[in-house]
Design a protein around this nucleic acid. Structure first.
Lengths: 206, 206
DNA sequence: GTGTTGATTGAACGATCAATCAAGTCACGT
DNA sequence: ACGTGACTTGATTGATCGTTCAATCAACAC
């Protein structure tokens, strides 16, 4: 099987869905941009939605090498890795005049009644992202209170990332992104302070 | 001017944009649902986008009576008003099988390159929402630390609302919404605790 | 009763959409 | 040399899109 053409289609669709969204991207957009002809596309994909599925599978399968590895290069501190991840989205926003937000988040809100297969892939992509952040929180160990619900906090951080992107893009002002991250910073700082406090109290008792 | 037909169009479009989004809602969708004929619609609106503008203006002009007044009926505590507001969105999600999220948020992410007029209206709607929450925070007075940035926290709360809706809808699980709100609750509790602590310390010094 | 205005009707338009398909090309096994 | 199957080409399809417009209607003015 000729993987090259298929891959070219997926990469082009990936880019276009990211910038324009799914519905605003026409098949002919994908064709002209990727220099592929309609027959070839429909040779590999039954329909437009299957291209979307392939794109979402690409995100799913490559989150480690395409997202985490890149964002976390040179950042060892687990808490700072979270902010490095957020900063990656900030950079995309700022350097593209707010065109590049979160591709998954945009698709998740754009597709109001998605096919189960599409919805599951969106959910899996969110879950993988959350899992990555959860890993950071877990690696932070006793810097966080022992009773911290790592998964809930990781979901909370995804929430903040998505909401911050939404507001920054709407206002076309990166300050909206930064302020949200700053509040998150105070929240995590407070968690760390509480963990230290707990440990001190524990030390006194012994 | 016959306001009745115009209003019928706006209300129908409002509903359809909320459920299906802007692009997935065709003019003929609006026409058939509202029992209005194309000529009438184009008599009042130059084009589809102007219907969207009218819808966004409706949200902008009616946020107090249509949103805040309804959510805050019987809730006097300013902090609880914030959670009552969030609970309104929760109810819409839960009682509609996740069809009704935040109409503004969905449109904001769906329209990747919106007309300036549309983008400004989206931004104004966000700003009004934030201002409503900011008012609650201000009314909370010294229950929050004196150095609290009310606007930043209000934007943070909008962020959480939007992100929580996004995740709950994607996973079709209201638990994702609830967990986010719960983390927000712990954050605001911490702010209140800090304010009390500050006041105690202030009292000792006197 | 004649003219004016705002509102309504619904057929029709051109553009664009996703999708199809018959014909053609090419690589490779026999 | 030949056949086979994977892949490519690009014209074409029918449906749907947003939009237009000439015709009609109802209400009121002169």
């Amino acid at each position: 099987m000729n993987t090259a053409t298929r891959e070219k289609i997926v990469q082009t669709a990936l880019e276009l869905f990211w910038v324009k969204g799914y519905q605003s991207t026409s098949i002919s957009d994908i064709l002209s941009r990727s220099q592929v002809h309609s027959g070839s596309l429909y040779h590999f994909f039954p329909g437009k939605q299957d291209v979307l599925v392939a794109v979402l599978e690409w995100y799913r399968d490559g989150i480690d090498e395409n997202l985490f590895a890149h964002a976390w290069a040179g950042v060892d501190d687990p808490i700072e890795r979270i902010f490095a991840l957020l900063n990656g989205y900030r950079m995309h926003l700022a350097s593209s005049d707010f065109m590049y937000g979160c591709p998954i988040g945009s698709l998740a809100l754009e597709l109001h009644e998605p096919d189960p297969k599409v919805r599951d892939l969106l959910a899996v992509n969110f879950a993988n992202w959350v899992e990555g952040v959860e890993r950071c929180l877990h690696e932070a160990g006793d810097r966080l209170p022992a009773d911290t619900d790592h998964k809930a906090v990781a979901e909370f951080i995804l929430t903040i990332m998505e909401g911050a992107i939404m507001q920054a893009r709407t206002h076309r002002d990166i300050g909206h992104f930064d302020r949200n991250v700053e509040v998150l910073r105070t929240y995590l700082d407070a968690l760390e302070a509480k963990a230290r406090l707990n440990q001190d109290q524990q030390g006194e008792k012994l």
